[in-house]
Amino acid sequence: MGYAYISIIEGNPHLRSLLGWHLQHVGYSVCQSADFHHAREVFYTTQPSLVVIDAELPGGNSLEFCQWLLQQRQSLILMLSARNTESDIVRGLRAGADDYLTKPFGMQEFLARAEALMRRTRNVAPPTSLDYGDLKIDLVQRRVYLQGQMIELTPQEYSLLYVLAQNDGEPLSRSELLRRAWPDYIDNPRTIDTHVLSLRKKMETDPRQPSLIQTVRNIGYRLNLDVLKPEPSWYPSVNGQLPPIQAKTGS
């Protein structure tokens, strides 16, 4: 059980620590965050099975964060809230929460609900790919397909593309990309530019006028999902098998 991660996003440091201590005591690995910015970074590094969210966290919208988590197709959500009206509970569940626990609550009830959700994660197979129409990222084989052709990427290029894809079209700064996509600490944001150039040469029709991996002025880069066709004709419809294709390497 020690490798089953639970992420706690709670603004009250005392409650956050208490919840973490009890979860660790029963055998879970726990990561704690006081805000959504840190929680996103933690998500990419730990891939938690369960996320416990404080609905009233200052400086962030918990409902929007729930919707973001749903897009990742990775974690179940337990929402904690002092709001106990029916409309509040319905709003939280419709935003994506799998369970809703009102404050104040007993620690045994919290643990029982967390453990019930964790049992559900054992029966749900993790996603094997990210599909964005013409672009498919195979998470098992660590392969990338664009318009039916396999693109041969280096491990670092794959990691960079994966992080860009996970951000659903929103831009990421060079420093954020370094933190999320590089296994070791590197204090040179221009390293990103070199790898982006390499990705463009392999994936863009015209690398000098990129439409897929776009530069966002004064910020960094984004993956432009709007240029990808939603239902590519090459995508296999039987047994989920990819068609035999020739590798495209580029230079």
Rank of each mutant, 00 (worst) to 15 (best):
D138T: 08
Q74W: 09
E86W: 00
G96M: 08
L93H: 03
L117C: 06
A125K: 13
S129R: 15
Y100H: 04
N84E: 09
A112D: 03
L101H: 05
S129H: 15
L70A: 14
L80N: 04
Q74S: 10
R113V: 04
P104W: 02
A82W: 00
K103F: 01
A82P: 00
P126T: 12
T128E: 14
D131W: 05
L76Y: 10
N123G: 12
D138H: 07
L76G: 02
D98Q: 07
T128D: 11
P127A: 14
G106F: 00
K103V: 07
T102G: 01
R122M: 08
G133C: 09
R120Y: 04
D99P: 02
E115S: 14
M107V: 13
T128F: 04
S87T: 14
M107P: 01
L78N: 07
R83V: 01
G96H: 09
E86P: 00
T121V: 14
M79F: 01
T121N: 07
M118Y: 02
Q67G: 09
K103P: 01
R94V: 12
M118R: 09
Y132V: 05
I89Q: 14
L78E: 06
T85I: 00
Y132P: 06
A97M: 06
L76D: 05
A112W: 06
F110M: 06
F105E: 03
E109H: 10
K136H: 14
D88L: 03
K136T: 13
S87Q: 14
T85D: 08
A95L: 06
R119S: 11
C66N: 00
R83C: 08
S87L: 11
P126A: 15
Y132H: 15
L117A: 07
T85R: 08
I77F: 03
E109K: 11
M107T: 11
P104E: 03
S81D: 02
Q72N: 09
Q74D: 05
A82G: 12
A125V: 12
A95G: 14
A82V: 03
E115A: 14
Y132K: 12
G133N: 10
S87K: 11
R94P: 01
P126E: 12
E115R: 12
R83K: 11
